[in-house]
Design a binder for these strands. Sequence first.
DNA 1: ATTTTAGTTTACGTTTACGTAAAAGTCAAT
DNA 2: ATTGACTTTTACGTAAACGTAAACTAAAAT
Lengths: 128, 128
Amino acid sequence: MNYYTISQLAEQFDVSTRTIRYYEERGLISPIRTESGQRLYTKKDRAVLKLILRGKRFGFSLDEIHEMISLFDNDRTGRKQLEKTIAYGEQKLKEVTERIEDLMQLKQEMESILADFRERLQKLEGIE
Amino acid sequence: MNYYTISQLAEQFDVSTRTIRYYEERGLISPIRTESGQRLYTKKDRAVLKLILRGKRFGFSLDEIHEMISLFDNDRTGRKQLEKTIAYGEQKLKEVTERIEDLMQLKQEMESILADFRERLQKLEGIE
DNA sequence: ATTTTAGTTTACGTTTACGTAAAAGTCAAT
DNA sequence: ATTGACTTTTACGTAAACGTAAACTAAAAT
């Protein structure tokens, strides 16, 4: 397997290294270290970072994202744990679904407003 | 027409009065005043507030929301202005569309992860 | 070998989006 | 009329999510 340095990741996702270290501070990502202490990020770490940034774009807080990440990488073997995880996941899935619906409504509204503006422009051009 | 007081709006949307006043500070909403200085909100003001809060849920900053609001209530009569508004609107529409697609992908991923967990649970239950 | 570049920790600074408290005026109800 | 709930402005406080700078070490390039 191959590793990324922190600045490589920073460049790939257009964030600062500070940001990535901050996510580590908050326990969202855990790169391994070289003997000298340099952080090395695996493909998996990269995927986690991608997830974090996507979550951010959707307006989730880092705490919420933290919870969602634990959904992905946790080894929940116990039955109770598994059930809890599923319940939590279903809850989050519902939230995401609602957000999609909400956004689609917004899109509709924007489209109708735009249509209105285009119509006005048409009329203006008819005058000239 | 009928008016709302600030606390009525605050209750309806489950935000603080401070929040609503802050949006006014930032120029996002402009209620009229009684002679004594009390704020009165129209249906339109209410709609704007609703828009602001929706924008927030999507992770837009107040500055971005401000721009988007101006799309709605501005009287852009000039042709140049109209064209600029349409261009801006198309841009924002594109962003929203991308977000929807992004969210739908997230939803897909969550569903497949959930399916995986459910399968694991099934197997565990088969053992007992 | 020695610059240059990149990485580390520590720590204080900053912005956004409000929370909270004080001091004073106003509205609604008893 | 006076209590109590509500509103106003002013102003300082705060949590989240980083930015930025210092002081230092390691890696890469010349």
